[in-house]
Design a protein around this nucleic acid. Structure first.
Lengths: 195, 195
DNA sequence: AAGCGCATGTAAAAGGTTACATGATTAC
DNA sequence: GTAATCATGTAACCTTTTACATGCGCTT
């Protein structure tokens, strides 16, 4: 199953940040998540690990075993953690749903502030997206083209659901995280209810 | 902006099925849809048009204009319509959200039965996906990993919204379409509410 | 005996983006 | 005058998939 357009290298690096794993482990983990992210082919995972190692971001530990191919467990290093943090904290721009999830899963590698910022950015992005779509639906309305109508309507539905989730999650997150760390003006972000 | 993993060729072909357009028109249309699909680069659209033409699926009509580059409007042909219908009616397998939308937008090139089947297939696919995710959330629960928890929760939320939309839409569609054309047992499909 | 899970990898091909080239017209 | 829109296209590069190679142990 294809994973789409998202540097596998960072996904792999992010997963190694949680615990040391082999290439096989990584694929298995992703497979267990089913659809959420998809399963990158071995043809992308193994080269990614190699590249990360040669970049000095991860280290390899080989366990030789008779009969079986040697198990190669990779661990993230200091440089890797830094690179990851940098990537995870970079502005997300117009990322797709899947790209969003991938980075979301790597939340543990972000500071609480970065997580909140990430969600807030997503919020305004999706909000403006939803508005655009709704404006289009309004203009279409008449029996223009069934396919376009369906697609737009679907887009609106998904975008609304995302906004609702973002709203909820930000609230929950603020309850959990230390309350002193109040971010910049949050109330400026559009609420899910009014889109 | 990347469009993800979806042969641009079929997207282009599908859009030409709606009305004759130039490569520029196609990109403009997609741009107006904002986020929903994304905007394939000219480096993929123009070659796609060429390929479609050399395959005999579309025909080109050139309008020469002084000053400006000639405007090349492509129209879908009979063979093109057939190829499109065939593609649109093929089983969707584990397609991503975006791939789903793209084909959804091409609904006008499908028979009503094919549309309903498409949505039903999506329904069972998303339902099983949602179940998997929920099972994972249940097992995780404890403070395992914030990122994974967020990602799974997000996945569940989006999947539920999709199911709700599919439910709604199938109902609306059945109201609109001739009622004689009742498909195979629909009640077997899981409802959105109980997931 | 066949097939799947474990476990690693490689090479070719496909598909797409990026960046460039070209050049007139319109809006600020 | 400067930027954006119109309008086409090419070539190098990057990422990813596909398909293969290898081979043991366990289950059906």
């Amino acid at each position: 199953m294809p994973i789409g357009v998202v540097n596998v290298r960072y996904l792999v690096l992010g997963l190694l940040a949680r615990r040391p794993m082999s290439g096989y482990d990584i694929r298995r983990l992703l497979r267990s998540l089913g659809w959420l992210i998809g399963i990158p082919s071995s043809g992308s995972v193994y080269p990614a690990l190699k590249a990360l190692e040669s970049q000095g971001l991860v280290t390899k530990e080989v366990t030789v075993r008779h009969d079986r191919p040697p198990r190669k467990v990779y661990s993230i290093g200091v440089a890797g953690k830094q690179a990851l943090r940098q990537w995870a904290s970079a502005p997300a721009s117009a990322s797709t749903l899947r790209a969003f999830v991938i980075r979301l899963m790597l939340a543990s590698s972000m500071s609480p502030e970065a997580i909140v910022r990430y969600l807030q950015d997503r919020q305004s992005l999706v909000a403006s997206h939803a508005e655009t779509l709704q404006e289009l639906v309004r203009r279409l309305d008449k029996m223009d083209d069934l396919g376009e109508l369906l697609a737009l309507d679907y887009g609106v539905a998904v975008a609304r659901a995302e906004l609702a989730w973002l709203d909820d999650t930000l609230v929950r997150l603020r309850e959990t995280l230390p309350p002193e760390e109040v971010m910049g003006d949050v109330s400026a972000a559009p609420a899910a209810g009014d889109v």
